[in-house]
């Protein structure tokens, strides 16, 4: 659909021929889907605690966008970040161990589901303050600008965050200074229980972002190829020095806001309608049609993903807890040994 606004620039139509890496995109989305389905089981069994927000339904956004980034680029995320972290290459077992609160977790058990970090992959974390990652992303981009490094900082955030001052302050600052920032708004139509049209006076987010003087596109966030295509062009634009770019990813979460949410505010028929557009099934169907995916290949993929998740759960279960004596670690930086 690649819905756009009159004022927002439209990305070029998707190339007809699907590139060879497309099956890898499917694998990546399926891996996120199955990982989170396992998380639900583990949450019900009280192995995972705290707040947990599922990305199920939105996988195409993380997979398509991260595909367009290089290892040098940075990613800043939200509390709904399992998908971003997995797509970015944070190992599944480190994420699972984190949710188990174990010492081998990617945040050493301090963060949990909402605060996954991996500095080695320039994954600057889950942030549980809505909009809180945006100014930080601008700062990462500013540092690159000052140091003359040609890197992109990609910041994911929701439609709800678009209402916060932190978004608008960051958008203005980034556009004013021409920062190398890729702003990816995951518009899943709800901020917790509040529908977009009940929170935004003007619901065309891409158009509003364009008003800051940024290149801004609305994209079908349920189509991983459209997402990837838009993200590549936007990242190219950022790398070419044309300042921040904004992508409004039109997507939908299939599950409740969090594990605590009774989901009373949405019409079940609406959820079912969006499920017809399931990004995983959509791509699998397309690949089947083009003959690039056989039933055997899909079964094999499912098995590979299941094995990886089994192993992640197993290692998280076996992993040691962080000793209570280390409670005060990482509050301030360790004193460097004099060399």
């Amino acid at each position: 659909m690649s819905a756009t606004t009159p004022r927002a620039r439209k990305p070029r139509a998707r190339p007809k021929k699907q590139p060879a890496h497309v099956p890898a995109l499917l694998a990546s989305m399926l891996r996120i889907r199955r990982f989170e389905e396992r998380c639900v089981e583990l949450y019900s069994a009280a192995r995972i605690r705290g707040f947990m927000h599922l990305y199920i339904g939105e996988e195409a956004v993380a997979v398509g966008v991260v595909e367009a980034l290089t290892d040098e680029d940075a990613v800043v995320s939200t509390y709904r970040e399992h998908g971003h972290a997995l797509a970015r290459g944070v190992p599944a077992d480190a994420i699972m161990a984190e949710m188990f609160g174990k010492a081998t977790g990617c945040s050493r058990g301090r963060g949990g589901s909402m605060h996954l970090f991996d500095a080695s992959r320039r994954f600057y974390g889950g942030n549980a303050i809505v909009g809180g990652g945006l100014p930080l992303a601008a700062g990462l981009a500013l540092a690159d600008r000052i140091a003359g490094r040609n890197r992109v900082t990609c910041c994911f955030f929701g439609d709800g965050a678009f209402a916060e001052g932190e978004f608008h302050e960051t958008a203005n600052l980034a556009a004013l200074w021409g920062l190398p920032l890729l702003l990816v708004c995951e518009n899943n139509l709800y901020a917790m229980g509040t529908a977009l049209e009940r929170a935004q006076a003007q619901t065309d987010l891409a158009m509003r972002a364009a008003s800051y003087g940024m290149v801004s596109w609305a994209v079908d966030g349920m189509d991983v190829l459209a997402v990837e295509d838009a993200a590549r062009r936007a990242a190219e634009g950022v790398r070419a020095g044309s300042g921040p770019h904004f992508l409004e990813m039109r997507t939908y979460r299939f599950r409740a806001h969090s594990m605590y949410d009774p989901d009373r505010y949405r019409d079940k028929a609406e959820i079912e309608r969006w499920k017809e557009n399931d990004p995983v099934e959509r791509l699998a169907g397309r690949l089947r049609q083009s003959g690039e995916l056989t039933d055997e290949a899909l079964a094999e993929l499912e098995q590979r993903v299941a094995d990886e998740i089994d192993a992640a759960v197993h290692s998280a279960e076996q992993a040691p807890e962080e000793p209570v004596e280390d409670l005060l670690r990482y509050v301030t930086s360790p004193v460097e040994e004099a060399s």
Partner: peptide, 9 residues
């Protein structure tokens, strides 16, 4: 300390 996630901590 900023409140840690892990139950024991």
């Amino acid at each position: 300390v900023p409140m840690p996630y892990a139950r024991r901590l």
